[in-house]
Design a protein around this nucleic acid. Structure first.
Lengths: 238, 238
DNA sequence: CGCTGTGAATGAATTCACAGCG
DNA sequence: CGCTGTGAATTCATTCACAGCG
């Protein structure tokens, strides 16, 4: 496990592979080759092998990969074997929706606090998990007390950089940002931005083109009929 | 405007440029060079020029770009001059949060309908805009009646492909997907996935590294002190 | 002169193709 | 034999550097 200069594109794909392996494990598959994995999930087998090879030699020549073993390896590599505690800054629509979002748990993330500057909201508890809302001025203190190591920024774009500065001052090293701005982070702090504006405008651009058969991913086209049929069969099963 | 084989990375950046220009216009700036734009927003001037050049010659040599004119051009290129009507499938936490999300409006998107299969929810109206919730079985009909041209998928991963198939059958060509799955779309249908799981796991990976100074974007590091100072000045102003 | 627009050069990511192991 | 792991080839994206225009 040398982990020197692994591209983020590679690590993002590791998440995808892990997800696929989880589906396979659920389906009772014990062993899979990179080729079979690629076929089944529209990936590229050489890329799978290369991505995995950055972190070790997990396969058996002539056989493939042990599904459970590879799952364990990827879980470890992605750090999903250790729990993370999340604080969400901004208890508006998005912030509260994220506080209720159940998808965090599968990756071993727990939302433990919300922060806001609205006196109406501070002191309340939100959602079925009754997550408390704190004053954003107490950020550093609550971060320390609750052992928060990941921040989610769900505030308006105008104030996002200011909030990030506070978050960094509180010693947090990993941030998920939903505000549509380019934030400037200090070295050693990772900010991942989910920019809905760009996503939407990208769709708008596509719709504005007079059908130039704008192809994002060539692989996602050819086998459609086949996929549709597989889909039909699955539906029929239930 | 030849728009042949423009990469999605390029069109995504057009959104960023437009956002920057809007800030400049607000600040009363009339004209800007690619160099000044790059300096101010941590971009690359050659890339700005190249990206724009795919769509025309908007600049004046020796001067730069007219801010308002370039804004109009980008708005047109991105199709933001025409309104889009959005239907959200899945009236759970995420779906309702998105229905209330005000950020859509700036890009000329309006949410006009929610869809669900829960009888409890069907027939209700949600949020301050009182957006109605329809039976997902009436998708095609409502899409036709309301002129919906963009779908948002906010349902569990398990059923996302099935929902996409229905969405495609209803004739929708642009889809924003929040379910953490790789969806298979027919040719001519654009699916943009916002995968929170991958984003989170990417943060987890970063935290798991024993500080190898994992650098995503080298530009975002060097000028931090300078940026922090600028930030201080702005805060002082208010 | 100062800028844009753009070929040419570099760099990064993906895919090919095969040696070599189980 | 069938697979992995990996150099080599290719494709794609970014950056450089400058001719040429206003």
């Amino acid at each position: 496990m040398k982990a020197e200069k692994v591209s983020e594109l590679t690590t993002n794909r590791l998440s995808v592979y892990l997800r696929c392996l989880n589906l396979l494990a659920e389906a009772g598959v014990k062993t899979i080759s990179s080729q079979a994995l690629a076929d089944q999930f529209n990936l590229n087998s050489a890329q799978i092998r290369k991505d995995l090879a950055y972190f070790g030699e997990f396969g058996v020549r002539g056989v493939g990969y042990d599904v459970d073993e590879l799952r364990r390896h990827l879980t470890k590599i992605l750090g999903l074997d250790r729990p993370h505690r999340v604080g969400i800054i901004g208890a508006g629509n998005l912030g509260t929706a994220l506080a209720n979002y159940t998808g965090f748990a599968a990756s071993n993330f727990t939302v433990v606090a919300l922060f806001d500057n609205d006196p109406q909201k501070i002191g309340q508890r939100i959602g079925q998990n009754q997550i408390p809302v704190y004053d954003v001025r107490d950020l550093a203190k609550v971060v320390r007390e609750k052992g928060i190591d990941v921040a989610v920024i769900a505030v308006p774009a105008r104030v996002a950089q200011r909030v990030l500065n506070q978050v960094m001052a509180a010693g947090i090293k990993a941030v998920l940002n939903f505000a549509p701005v380019r934030l400037h982070a200090r070295l050693g702090v990772k900010v991942k931005t989910v920019d809905l504006t760009i996503s939407l405008e990208s769709l708008s651009y596509f719709l504005a083109r007079p059908q130039v058969t704008c192809i994002t991913n060539p692989r996602s086209i050819l086998p459609y009929e086949e996929i549709a049929q597989r889909e039909e069969r699955e539906l029929a099963k239930e």
